[in-house]
Design a protein around this nucleic acid. Sequence first.
DNA 1: GATTAAAAAGTGGTCTGGCCACTTTTGAAC
DNA 2: GTTCAAAAGTGGCCAGACCACTTTTTAATC
Lengths: 213, 213
Amino acid sequence: MDKKTEQKKVFLDIVQQLRQLIKLEKIQAGEKLPSERVLSERLGVGRSSVREALRSLELLGLIETRHGGGTFLASTQKHQLVEILSMFILEDEKSKKDVELTRQIHEKEAIRVISCTETLRTLPVWDSFFVKLEIEGTINCRDVLREIIITSGNRLSLKVWFQLAVYDGDRLNRNSTEEEKIIIQTMLKSMQLGYEKEALKAYEQWMRIVQSN
Amino acid sequence: MDKKTEQKKVFLDIVQQLRQLIKLEKIQAGEKLPSERVLSERLGVGRSSVREALRSLELLGLIETRHGGGTFLASTQKHQLVEILSMFILEDEKSKKDVELTRQIHEKEAIRVISCTETLRTLPVWDSFFVKLEIEGTINCRDVLREIIITSGNRLSLKVWFQLAVYDGDRLNRNSTEEEKIIIQTMLKSMQLGYEKEALKAYEQWMRIVQSN
DNA sequence: GATTAAAAAGTGGTCTGGCCACTTTTGAAC
DNA sequence: GTTCAAAAGTGGCCAGACCACTTTTTAATC
């Protein structure tokens, strides 16, 4: 008995089959999916059921639909985990805190990994941040954190982080204050020198400022 | 101009309105929502649109439907956000190593949190593990890690971990060996005493064994 | 041949109405 | 009061229709 066919609900079955279809036909982000009518025929189900599945994926930001244009596979950046989370779950403060803490878990680990890895902590990108801070006097907070996560090399961690960072969008996607500038410099410099503890200390100091905003 | 009414797509509008309805009528987890036909009439939209919205929320595990019974608000524990996203995110580029590392990131953080928190590290559950190890001589590896994550108190982290643990299912869901027993005891004891560093050291020693399997 | 405008085809958005399967409620017989 | 069958309520699914919008095709013009 195939797991896929013993699904109770058609629309859930369709979600599974869409996943397979995307995989088999190697549909890339941004590319077009078969039309609702074609899917309906190919899968042998009603168009309304296909729509229920597509709309579910759309709510998650996994696909995008253009009226009259078609249905397209969305890019990873557009997944809307957090939008939905904030709508139904993040009502209470506890959940908001969880999102923030989870994001920080990944950031802290990235800092540890980089500090302990010669080839990563000596990367020229860190110097470029110093230069930018010198010239412009400020830097985008989110950019710094993103670069740290990217450099750590764990792509899955990056994806999780990306989702979580959307939620704190306003607090992170802004230029650093004068106060933060010094802390960020300390953090980066410590990281470059492999001083894991100091780097984390600076990071936590920075996050306390971020949180107070 | 009301944000709710300027939505382009009806089904997204309905998702919003459902949220309001749940809030206004104070519908608790497990309680029944109005029927699809009633919602259709109350919101002045077609039943198919209502279904598209409901099916979207069902995919997320935010609501549960019982054929012939009705639609019910799901309990928080049943939300499947991470699971669904992982279906699309993890499947394609599943770098096994990334999954493993990411899982460990959450486990290590949980150990840190527990070690540093008086009320958590002195919980009786840890003693119960010792008792079990004494009597049965072994313990399920996954159970130990799960308890650690749960105790750390970050529900989102737990959700992420749960999903990642599925991939390492075989390596984790088994009884500990004699060699592991001692390491686990060391880890738990260090954690209980608040020796964060020692606990993590034992953990990493344990993971090296797990990885070699 | 290239450009442009109109027509046609394709596609998503939505609604109506129908039928089925299952659950809950109702009400009558006991 | 209990039991059980009928009725009502509800979700599951489908077919068809119409609209709005986009893309492609076609035809006319330059």
